[in-house]
Design a binder for these strands. Structure first.
Length: 421
DNA sequence: TCTGGGGTCCTAGGACCC
DNA sequence: TCTGGGGTCCTAGGACCC
């Protein structure tokens, strides 16, 4: 049986989430800002139509915002994560097999659907999702994942009302490939796009007409896979199981410049804790941890960047152990006299906790501190983030960013539950 | 004044081993 | 003077994604 892949993708996801509960911004231009209210990371259709570019810093589009009364929100990941889970649950109920690909996208295996049923099936899924979650989606359907992506983009662009597009004939395939600019193809980023255009390759179709050995040589096997997929040969499968993360990071730009090591210590211990929590939540331990600090690359002030990577004797997910290493590392890389703007912690060499090999020469793991870590996880899960935290994390952190325009956590915090009066 | 955060995969090159 | 060859493992860097 030949395959059919679908790609369901939420339209303007973060902006759409804000509109579910806040009726005053429905049909109004809305933009969502990154951490620190830095730059635009999501736009409603109305905002796109007004010419708000993706990724621009807020201060650069302030005149546009004022002029058109564009509503803007700080990002509210608790809300988006919860709405995403609802959408994915619905897709799971409606579709034979689902691979959650990102917070707002999922691949579907539709191979068991009859060819002539694909379009009505897609339309039904779209309608149900809209009804159950109030999130508008588009669905692209084709023979490969890369083509489903292409079909999805085509649906968004040309059939937004229907919201579903199926590439089910050679003619439609060629037409879609010819109408897709090369830089819009999934897997062709800025660098490759620029190179291809300089070679006179402007569309997905022209890409598929290049010789195979040229693709392999210039774009390695990743590019070759894409090339084959665009020609209709599936090289990527649906992966339904959620794999454990191989790297876990936590980093933040600061709300203002930070000079003292104490403030940096507060920040990096908080990040170390987050990494440890994430490790425990996927039942893994890390062999390695690194920490870095940096100044603001956009400013004219003296620049500094340094990081350090450290190994554990025995892989760990213990908050205390990870914190300790990170604090030690910070002392090694910290230099007085700079305005620091960002710091981050990442853990790597991640292994399942059952695969850990003991180290004869390492001290026995501290079981008490591990139990405390787990207890903290439980309490924080029940009563909310950072109900319980470490003294060194501070209580009035100067490094924390601004989120001046954050919407309520309508779905994940009792106090923020919508009231009907 | 103000510029996000968290991932993946692949390749090249060096260290090391036999 | 001439200085192997093949394999593995690790890391850094670069490309991409949302």
């Amino acid at each position: 049986m030949s395959k059919w892949f679908g790609l369901a993708d939420c339209n303007n996801f973060y902006a759409s989430c804000e509109r579910i509960f806040d009726l005053s911004v429905r049909e109004k231009p809305v933009v969502i800002l990154s951490n620190n209210d830095g730059c635009v990371i999501s736009r409603s259709q109305e905002a796109k139509d007004l010419g708000v570019p993706m990724g621009t810093p807020l201060h650069k589009i302030k005149p546009l915002i004022d002029k058109h009364k564009i509503h803007f929100f700080s990002s509210n990941y608790a809300l988006y994560g919860d709405i995403s889970a609802r959408v994915m649950n619905c897709l799971n109920d409606l579709c034979p097999a689902v691979e959650v690909y990102s917070i707002d996208e999922a691949f579907l295996d539709l191979s068991i659907i009859k060819d002539e049923e694909l379009l009505p099936f897609g339309i039904n899924v779209k309608k149900k999702i809209a009804k159950w979650t109030k999130i508008p989606i588009c669905i692209g359907i084709a023979r490969t994942k890369s083509l489903a992506k292409l079909a999805n983009r085509y649906a968004k662009k040309n059939f937004k009302e229907v919201g579903v597009f199926v590439i089910d004939s050679e003619e439609i395939l060629l037409k879609t490939l010819k109408e897709t600019p090369i830089e819009d193809v999934w897997g062709i980023g800025r660098k490759h796009g620029k190179f291809l255009k300089s070679e006179g390759i402007n569309t997905a179709y022209e890409f598929t007409q290049l010789p195979e050995n040229f693709i392999q040589k210039r774009f390695s096997i990743v590019g070759l896979r894409l090339y084959k997929e665009l020609k209709g040969e599936p090289c990527l499968n649906l992966t339904e199981v959620i794999e454990k993360k191989k790297v876990i990071q936590h980093s933040r730009s600061f709300g203002r410049y930070v000079q003292s090591i104490n403030d940096l210590e507060e920040a990096v211990t908080t990040f170390a804790n987050k990494c440890a929590e994430k490790l425990r939540s996927q039942e893994t331990c890390a062999c390695t941890v690194s920490v870095y600090i940096r100044t603001n690359p956009f400013s004219n002030k003296p620049q500094y960047y340094d990081g350090i990577t450290m190994n554990f004797d025995v892989p760990t997910s213990n908050t205390f152990e990870i914190q300790q290493k990170v604090l030690w590392g910070l002392k090694q890389i910290f230099v007085q006299g700079y305005d620091y703007k960002k710091a981050g912690v990442s853990v790597m060499g991640i292994v399942g906790k059952e695969e850990i090999q003991g180290n004869l020469f390492a001290p026995e793991p501290n079981e008490n501190s591990q139990k405390i870590s787990q207890l903290m996880d439980k309490i924080n899960a029940k009563f909310g983030k950072e109900t319980l935290k470490f003294a060194i994390q501070g209580t009035n952190s100067v490094w924390k960013g601004n989120a001046s325009k954050i919407s309520p956590k309508y779905t994940t915090l009792w106090e923020d539950l919508l009231r009907v009066e």
